[in-house]
Every structure is written in structure tokens, then in C-alpha cells.
């Protein structure tokens, strides 16, 4: 891993403040490429610690309606892979310290080969990649290329990932571990807090990687509750819905909403005192 690893630095800083990291997702090029930089800046201004930038795909089969529509809006307005990397590189120039993760599907990532993709990530200052449809069994498609250039491959653990399977998921995982709280698609059901706590405890027993929890997290209250047990909270569909409603003018609304999330994820000490 690189000497200055933005992801581990950021997780360490949040930990030092006694709080979970807020990880926010938007789709690159939604509603169009021109509008995306202001939306990304709004995420940071609202208090997001880590940014997940979705690479649009025509067939996002792990996503619910909110993010699926975002993908189609983005592609409909003409977003290309080269635009996604340009958005990432510009973000890196404006926000040298904020970790940036690319999230998406294998086919757009690998269309020009894994080496090309990894090199582009490196050049654009992308810190990590989440590829929804590359399970550990198919790691050879993308893992070696990313590791060779020091870009994290963030793996997903789900409610169906049992103890027997977890080591396979952790083998080759880096950056953080993304716990998918519900067996399902993005933005739909919510997991019971008790189940999340149980799952995070099991994952923490198995790895030293930070644990981030996502899928179905829509409100400041939920984010706060998850923030008490996990190292990171991921919010996606709820933000994407705001972009869907406000389009080009979404940035201030996004910033307000993200501020409500970051404001709710209090340092544990402060919360106890309050």
C-alpha cells in the first residue's frame, strides 16, 4: 500500500475523534457530467469523510430503483468512462485529503482490461474500488491489477456470508470491509439494528480492517445508531434520490442532507455526555 494511504489516515482520524466515518455515494455523471463536481463538493462540505463515486452501468442488477435510475440518467446524458476518471482526477485536485472510492460493475471496469483500469485509477487519485459482481472466486479478473498499483480492493460481506466463507472474503480485501446490512439490493429494506450489531461484532473478531455498514441507511437516526457500532456508515440511495429530484440544482440540498447525517454521527464521548 502507498505510504500516504488516504483511507487508513481518514479512518484513523475519525477513530481519534471517537466517531464513525461518514461514507456517501453518488453516481458519476448524474444528472450530467457538468453537475457532478458541485455535488461532490457538497458531499465534502456537508461533512462526508469518504466519497464513493458510482461508475454508471446499463445493467446495475444489484441496485434498487433509486441508483438504477441514477445510472440511466447518467448514461442518458452521455457519460463515458473517460468522464468518470476526469471527474475523479478533478476531485482529487480540489480535495487532496478526501478518500475516493470507485464503485460499480465488472463490465465497464474491465472493458479495456484490468491493467488499464488500475492504471487509470492510480493516475486519477482513486484510493479504492468496489466491484459488485466480482466475488473472491473471480479475484483474478481485477484484484492483482489493483494491488500492483496500490489501489485498495474493498470487499463486501453480506448476511449470507457465513463463518466458513468469511476468510475467503477477507483474503485480498483491503482499505475497509463493506458490510451489506441486508440480503438484497440497494436502497430498499432496512436491517434491524440488533442484526447489524451482531454482524459487526463477528466481522471485527475476524479482521482488523475498518468495518463500514451500508444498504438501506436513509436517515440521520439510522446513521447515528450504526455509527455507534461500526467504523463507517454508508449512505447512497437517499442522496441519489435528492439528485434525482433536484437535478442540476441538487448540490445545496445534498449538502444540507449530508450535514444532517454528519451532525447525527456524534463522537461517542460527546453523545454520552449529552
Amino acid at each position: 500500500m502507498p505510504v500516504t494511504d488516504r483511507l487508513s489516515t481518514r479512518f484513523a482520524a475519525c477513530k481519534a475523534q471517537g466517531r464513525a466515518a461518514l461514507i456517501t455515494f453518488v453516481t458519476a455523471g448524474d444528472p450530467d457530467v457538468a453537475a457532478t463536481p458541485a455535488i461532490l463538493d457538497a458531499l465534502v462540505a456537508g461533512g462526508a469523510d469518504i466519497i464513493e463515486l458510482g461508475m454508471p452501468f446499463t445493467d446495475p442488477m444489484a441496485d434498487g430503483p433509486a441508483i438504477e435510475l441514477a445510472n440511466l440518467r447518467s448514461l442518458g446524458s452521455g457519460t463515458k468512462t473517460s468522464d468518470v476518471f476526469a471527474l475523479a482526477a478533478d476531485f482529487r485536485a480540489r480535495h487532496p485529503q478526501t478518500p475516493l472510492i470507485l464503485m460499480g460493475y465488472a463490465n465497464p471496469m474491465l472493458a479495456r482490461g484490468s491493467t488499464w483500469f488500475a492504471d487509470q485509477c492510480k493516475a486519477a487519485g482513486v484510493d479504492g474500488v468496489i466491484c459488485v459482481d466480482i466475488p473472491p472466486e473471480e479475484d483474478a479478473e481485477i484484484g492483482p491489477a489493483l494491488r500492483a498499483v496500490g489501489v485498495h480492493l474493498v470487499r463486501l460481506a453480506t448476511p449470507t456470508t457465513d463463518a466458513a466463507r468469511l476468510p475467503a472474503v477477507l483474503d485480498g480485501a483491503s482499505g475497509f470491509l463493506y458490510h451489506v446490512a441486508v440480503a438484497g439490493i440497494t436502497g430498499k429494506q432496512q436491517a434491524a439494528q440488533a442484526n447489524i450489531e451482531l454482524a459487526v461484532a463477528k466481522l471485527k473478531a475476524a479482521t482488523d480492517l475498518p468495518i463500514a455498514v451500508g444498504f438501506g441507511v436513509r436517515s440521520p437516526e439510522q446513521a447515528a445508531a450504526i455509527g455507534r457500532v461500526a467504523d463507517g456508515v454508508v449512505v447512497g440511495s437517499a442522496i441519489v434520490d435528492i439528485v434525482g429530484s433536484h437535478g442540476d440544482a441538487a448540490a445545496p440540498f445534498v449538502q444540507d442532507f449530508v450535514a444532517s447525517l454528519s451532525g447525527a454521527i456524534l463522537p461517542r464521548t460527546q453523545e454520552t455526555a449529552a
Binding site: A62, A106, D133, P135, E137, E138, A157, T158, T160, V180
Partner: peptide, 20 residues
């Protein structure tokens, strides 16, 4: 044994589906 026909096939699914 991993479901590959030469360079094709495989198991490219979300982690949730892998155990099944």
C-alpha cells in the same frame, strides 16, 4: 471446477448470492 469454459463462464455475482 470453477465453472470456466476456457476463458468464459465463471461466477460473477454479488456476494449475497455466492453461498447459494
Amino acid at each position: 471446477q470453477n465453472g470456466h469454459f476456457g476463458a468464459f463462464g465463471g461466477r460473477y455475482v454479488a456476494e449475497t448470492l455466492m453461498p447459494l
